[in-house]
Amino acid sequence: MDVLRRNHVTVTGNPAGRTVVLAHGFGCDQNMWRLTLPALTASYRVVLFDYVGCGRSELSAFDEERYSTLDGYARDVTEVCEALDLRDAVFVGHSVSAMVGVLAARLAPERIGALIMVAPSPRYIDDEGYRGGFSADDIDELLVSLESNYLGWSATMAPAIMGNPDRPELGKELTNSFCATDPAMARVFARTTFLSDSRDDLKSVSVPTLVLECTNDVIAPREVGAFVHACIPGSTLVTLDATGHCPHLSAPEATNEAIVAFLEQPR
């Protein structure tokens, strides 16, 4: 199995620079990093990929059992790192991918030398003494929402893309990525994401870590950001003046600034 093809791996940027791996979260694919890329490519070698079941990955490689745990997604990361023989790379994970990065760094410590966690949450469902922001019923409701948009998903996107004549390059990638997402695979990813509990894994992080949270994120509220920061020894927490769960899209300048500042820190 050609991992680079399986995960639709793209390598760009400065070949002489330190490698930065950008990992998308649930509901997205590597296109989500488009506004981050320009800030990195001059100085860093940037690796983008899609998890199996997302974007333009090889859907035939999807295995429901493997991708029913975050470890399955973490193995995608370590296998991509191995295929490119990365050493001491910086792993930037959005949303659930931030936790996938924690697991991957533990599986392959020589390959991942730093973590940037964008809007992370180790557990989305409330628990005793912990507020993740959601109840188990809420997650079921999300699965229903996914299903409601299951019938018309590709048909829905097409006109939206057609109505975007001034930026056709966006449309092309989106039709290919979002429309290709198999609803059954999206459902597995949603369940794995929102039903996981990785709080105990945070303690295992031993690499320099940056935690980026947003001022107003309904998916990862600020107390979750504080929790992640508190659990990872020596981590840095930066609160971005951004609304929503995707600061790399809604506040790209501030997000890029924080990422670059962390990358430029002397090691």
Binding site: C28, N31, M157, A160, G163, N164, R167, I219, C246, S250
Partner: peptide
């Protein structure tokens, strides 16, 4: 948050 808002940002509609 996971689909609608990011797509709107990227596509404009």
């Amino acid at each position: 948050e996971t689909h609608f808002a990011p797509l709107l940002r990227m596509q404009g509609t």
